[in-house]
């Protein structure tokens, strides 16, 4: 009995030692020599593997950061300036601070604003729907509401509002990685400057049809009337193809354009309430703004 146990223990011990030796030799022989700074850099990245930097994941971005000399054009939108400065310090390279950005949905064509004229019965995907036809409303530019943007978001920062059937952004979670921007077949989502105190103004429409056509399809469409351009004192608004666009770099957030827009398609976010004399206007804009405002 004793000898059985002894032999077993010895046998297994020898076997274990042999296998350990084999493992050690193999590990030594096939060892991959890697710049250890890659590991260091990777540990400073958020590890979300979202692809917002343009690389397949945090590891490959870290590799690129280590190997490239000039990293000023490379940016991790999730880690933001903090992470990039830290990495630059660690690698002894230079970065420039960037304005933090956030995704905005440039369509306010909710079920109430934009009448559904047919019913889509294919695969539940915006891309499939966009490849099939112009969409279930008269507006061929607007949101299809099938949530391709939701399914690509790694941060749970975008969701479809059940009432409006439009995607909404959770400002606290959005990291501006840009996945939703790439996923949207209608190119509705835009990364915009987050703005001071998260305040920003944008045109919530991308309809390039003539004013009358756009207005007929959707009550909150931009009709290209240029009232906002006239109101703007900073020349930040351009109108092209019957569609206004506010340049975030020129906009000083004065909110004059919001007040003059006849279709309420310009949206202001996170501003304090207006002065009492503007009371009527305020209610109106809040009504339009709440559809895309973060909850």
């Amino acid at each position: 009995m004793d000898s059985t146990i002894l032999t077993t223990v010895i046998m297994l011990g020898v076997l274990a030692a042999m296998l350990a030796a084999v493992l050690y030799i193999v590990a030594q022989k096939f060892k991959v020599v890697e710049d250890e700074r890659i590991d260091g850099t990777e540990s400073m990245l958020p590890g979300a593997n979202c692809g917002g930097c343009g690389y397949t994941g945090c590891r490959s971005f870290a590799e690129a950061l280590v190997k490239t000399d000039d990293i000023s054009v490379m940016f991790c939108p999730v880690g933001g300036n903090a992470a990039m400065t830290k990495i630059a310090e660690y690698l002894g390279k230079k970065v420039e601070a960037k304005d933090s950005e956030i995704a905005v949905v440039r369509c306010a064509g909710s079920c109430a604003n934009r009448q559904r004229i047919n019913e889509f019965d294919g695969a539940a995907s915006c891309a499939v729907m966009a490849a099939t036809y112009s969409g279930d409303t008269d507006c061929s530019y607007g949101c299809l509401g099938r949530g391709d943007c939701v399914s690509v978001c790694n941060f749970g920062a975008i969701y479809i509002n059940g009432e409006t059937m439009l995607p909404e952004i959770d400002e606290d979670k959005c990291t501006a990685c840009g996945n939703c921007v790439k996923a949207c077949p209608k190119l509705i989502i835009e990364l915009r400057k987050k703005g001071p105190k998260s305040r920003r103004i944008y045109v919530s429409c991308i309809n390039k049809d003539k004013g009358a056509v756009a207005r007929k399809a959707c009550t909150v469409a931009c009709i290209g009337c240029a009232a906002c351009r006239k109101a703007c004192t900073f020349e930040s608004i351009v109108i092209e193809n019957f569609l206004a666009y506010i340049d975030p770099n020129k906009c000083r957030l004065c909110r004059k354009c919001v007040e003059v827009c006849p279709t309420e398609s310009i949206i202001e976010l996170n501003f304090p309430p207006r002065k009492p004399k503007m009371e009527i206007q305020e209610q109106k804009t809040d009504g339009a703004g709440s559809e895309t405002a973060a909850s």
Binding site: G122, V128, A131
Partner: peptide, 11 residues
């Protein structure tokens, strides 16, 4: 929706 997605994947 097999062919819906295959068509999309193909393009």
């Amino acid at each position: 929706p097999l062919v819906d997605y295959i068509r999309l994947g193909k393009t």
